[in-house]
């Protein structure tokens, strides 16, 4: 969906066309789900929050509250984010801290917070059937790719939400640095810095385990 089709859909929805809203749900549900899951980290709560968020979006469109001042996708993700934050507060009875990083001043080293909870163990016993889908790669390459994916996944699940949320908004929800900065009320420089540091740390972890040439095979 592009901006034009979004506008057409918005007009149809405000006239009561629920099928037009189904298209909107279809287009944004997965990316909105990723964002909500990043905050709530629980599938059931994420489902509930997503339902609330999309219902809010529907009501807002019906009430003609969307004023075309921002991209429609940004508007959707803003509602989804705010709903998830509200649900987080309600479920955990505390505010989600996305501004400051919780560190111990005495033994803190730059980047520590990114690897503090990162524990990766190579999983033995990966069988041929795991790779059945892709026959072009050799077993060794498939094994390597599987391992890279596991490392990246483990890393993303272990880094603080201050980082993972920004990465999600930037790479999955395709929001600009400025839009993220406005949404999270964090300076643009901090957003850029967190994206850069998160990537650099991951690169460091991957290069510790694999040779550059091995990584380059995926280009």
């Amino acid at each position: 969906m592009n901006q034009e089709t979004d506008i057409i859909a918005i007009k149809k929805i405000s006239e009561g066309d629920t099928e037009a809203f189904r298209e909107i749900v279809n287009t944004y549900k997965d990316k909105a789900y990723s964002l909500t899951y990043r905050i709530l980290k629980n599938k059931d709560d994420t489902n509930d929050s997503l339902q609330d968020a999309f219902f809010k979006i529907y009501s807002l469109i019906k009430e003609k509250k969307f004023e075309y001042k921002s991209k429609f996708s940004t508007y959707i993700y803003t509602v989804v984010y705010n709903t998830a934050i509200d649900n987080y507060r309600r479920l955990y009875s505390r505010k989600l801290n996305i501004v400051s990083i919780n560190i111990n001043e005495y033994n803190y080293r730059d980047g520590d917070e990114l690897t503090k909870n990162f524990k990766y163990e190579s999983k033995a016993g990966i069988t041929e059937t795991t790779y059945a889908a892709d026959d072009k790669l050799s077993t060794e390459e498939k094994h390597r790719e599987q391992e890279i994916n596991s490392i990246v996944s483990e890393y993303l699940n272990s880094i603080p939400i201050n980082y993972s949320l920004i990465l999600n908004l930037f790479y999955i929800n395709e929001m600009s640095i400025k839009e993220i900065s406005e949404l999270l009320k964090i300076p643009e420089g901090t957003i850029k810095n967190r994206i850069f540091r998160a990537k650099e740390k991951l690169k460091e972890i991957l290069l510790k385990r694999f040779k550059e040439e091995e990584l380059m095979e995926y280009v």
Partner: peptide, 18 residues
């Protein structure tokens, strides 16, 4: 190129299907 690989891997791993 390594950066591109990392970015694509991040995208794959962050994406959750509802």
């Amino acid at each position: 190129n390594i950066e591109k690989i990392i970015e694509s891997k991040i995208k794959i791993q962050l994406f959750e299907t509802s």
